[in-house]
Amino acid sequence: MSSSDLVAALLQSIGVDNPHGLSDNTARIEVHENRVVGLKLVPGLKVDADETDDGINVEIRVEAGVRLQKPVHICFGVLPEDGRQHIDLDVRIHQDAHASFLAHCTFPNAVDVRHTMTAGIEVEPGAHYAYFERHVHGTHGGITVIPEARVIVHDDAEFTTEFELIKGRAGQIKFDYETLCHDRSVVEMTARISGRADDRIEIHERAQLLGDEAKAALISHIALRDDARAEIYNDVTAYGARARGHVDCKEIVLDRAIAKAVPMVAVHNPTAHVTHEAAIGSVDSRQLQTLLSRGLTEDEATDLIIEGLLSKKARWTKD
């Protein structure tokens, strides 16, 4: 397939019919397997990509003071049934720059696909970086996703990331994100994942609130059906004065699924404050009975409650 056909096929798999539906001043990066098949830059955004045997190394820079008006669209995908894709991502958002990225990872036909990512991300002082990653998987479950990120969020900087996997089978997911949060920085990491059949989900997220008045929230909302399993390890450790942290882990578990949540909260400074809430179980009985009393069947009611759990939420760190 030609590059433009691949771009069209990738975008179609994520529900975007026409790549040109993205207006001309939208920056875009499309990567199929180990090839950059589409690239459009805007002033202030630099992207360098090197193809490797099984993926690519990408360097992304947003220049100091630049405010990108629109989200940069990224699409990583493997269209065939099998393949390997390793993305090495090196991101630096320079001082006072603001950028948001909307990334789609699409493996619609995966029977034996492995997508791994190692990311080093640095958000310089006063910069804002928002990274929203939506996964579109097929129905087979033959997909392994292993993202790892080390993030440094400097003074007065903001880093928000959201991982959404609601459509298709989760397959095997194991992710590991660590953030170091300096003075007055704000970090929010959210995962919203639906697992079924024999999907396996493992999440490790750590936020170290090193700086004074640093703020972080780690949020995991997971729904599991059939024989799916999830293990969530969230760790917020506060060292800075008046640092604030929060862990929110909610899992709905149906059928024979098994969920485990291990929130770790630690405070090394008496002025810091870290909270956590975890709730694991079947759908809430009062919610269920309410929807049944409106005439929904048990399955319809359960789906609606899960839809609520997995929906996008207002940011915890906004208040």
Binding site: R286, Q287, T290, S293, E298, E307, G308, L309, S311
Partner: peptide, 20 residues
């Protein structure tokens, strides 16, 4: 739910909350 589809429903004294 069958009662509800027959046309019976209940407005709760303290209605449940639905996050999201």
């Amino acid at each position: 739910d069958a009662r509800a589809r027959m046309g019976i429903t209940l407005a709760w004294q303290e209605p449940a909350r639905f996050e999201g």
